[in-house]
């Protein structure tokens, strides 16, 4: 038997452009597992295609993100779009494994020919986004998916980075979230372009809407002039019965238009690419210098010296950095 990504299937850019699902799926596995091997392919795909419109969806566990995503995507598909979903779940720090359960709520769209769903684990990229996610966006864009949803649980650092990747970001919350909302990370509160108050048949919904409005108003007092600014709307939905979904899709479309008019569609990718370039550099510095360093006798010796108080971590770092400079030329 095989591990899928060890299969030496050669993937060409033409095959990705043709959009065959098996090719796309295999390309994503290579991106996750054999990164160097796909860089030539990614170079070609990137230069020969436009990035899709990216919708980021984040919020606490159990807020109904996956159900909501399925309904949003259904609407887009009815309008004739090809849509891809990247559903991200955390990798366990202890085992390195992950449970990817977002497909459970996506039954409605899981066999639609115009929808491609891929579950991905975060794979423990400390303080940053797994660069594989952006690379996956490059492949899906080239394969003809004009709209891509990236769904992620809003509990850590990753989702804020994913927000920095998306054109439009939905922050999903629920009435019973209560104080959790007040504990929303400041960054997330600012990053949301649209707030979705899901499970709006809950008796506490009005109270929650009030709390959200107050928090948004606090956030809105600073910053740009009112006329150039996107007023962050709150959309109430009941995802399971599709109540509010049409309005939500309309609001998303309005934000997309707002970005185009403001010219941010040209400006935003600059920021996205800058983030991705840094992620790629971090990844390759780690692979080329840090990982080998960790295995080296010199590193072990330094650790012993630190333990014996002959030196300290700060001086050790300075010494290593000086060596890096030499090696990097």
């Amino acid at each position: 038997m095989r591990k899928s990504w060890q299969n030496k299937m050669k993937i060409t850019a033409e095959q990705v452009f043709a959009g065959e699902e098996k090719v796309i799926a295999r390309a994503i596995s290579l991106i996750e597992n054999e990164r160097q091997q796909v860089f030539p392919l990614l170079k070609e795909l990137y230069s020969r295609s436009e990035l899709a419109y990216l919708l980021g969806v984040t919020g606490p566990p159990g807020s109904g993100k996956s159900t909501l995503v399925a309904k949003i995507v259904s609407g887009w598909v009815r309008e004739g779009n090809k849509v891809a979903v990247i559903a991200i779940d955390p990798t366990s720090e202890f085992s390195g494994g992950a449970l990817l359960g977002d497909r459970i709520r996506m039954d409605d769209i899981s066999t639609n020919k115009d929808v491609f769903i891929r579950s991905m684990a975060t794979r423990g990229y400390l303080g940053g986004l797994n660069p594989a996610i952006f690379d996956t966006v490059v492949v899906l864009s080239a394969a003809g998916y004009k709209k891509i949803v990236i769904e992620t649980v809003g509990v850590g650092q990753n989702e804020i980075d994913i927000v920095s990747l998306a054109d439009t970001t939905l922050v999903v919350t629920v009435p019973e979230a209560g104080d959790e909302v007040q504990a929303f990370k400041a960054g997330l509160m600012e990053a949301g372009d649209i707030f979705v108050l899901n499970k709006a048949d809950h008796p506490e919904v009005n109270k929650m809407e009030l709390v959200l409005k107050q928090m948004l108003r606090l956030g809105n007092t600073a910053g740009e002039q009112a006329e150039n600014r996107w007023e962050v709307p709150i959309v109430k939905t009941i995802a399971t019965t599709e109540k509010g979904i049409a309005e939500l899709n309309k609001t998303i479309a309005e934000h997309q238009e707002f970005l185009t008019e403001k010219g941010e569609n040209q400006k935003a990718p600059g920021k996205i690419i800058s983030n991705h370039l840094i992620h790629l550099l971090e990844e390759s510095l780690k692979r080329k210098y840090l990982d080998p360093l960790k295995e080296s006798p010199a590193f072990a010796k330094l650790l012993q010296e630190i333990a014996a108080k002959k030196t300290d971590p700060y001086s050790a770092m300075e010494e290593l950095m000086a060596n890096f400079k030499e090696r990097l030329g």
């Binding site: 990504w5 994503i28 992950a98 709520r105 039954d107 066999t111 769903i117």
Partner: peptide, 23 residues
């Protein structure tokens, strides 16, 4: 391992499509 769970009452078509897309 990375485990994709698709939930209850899946048709053969749903299972095969998930296996294909998730590789």
């Amino acid at each position: 391992m990375e485990v994709v769970y698709t939930g209850l009452r899946q048709t053969p078509a749903q299972i095969v499509r998930a296996a294909l897309q998730e590789d």
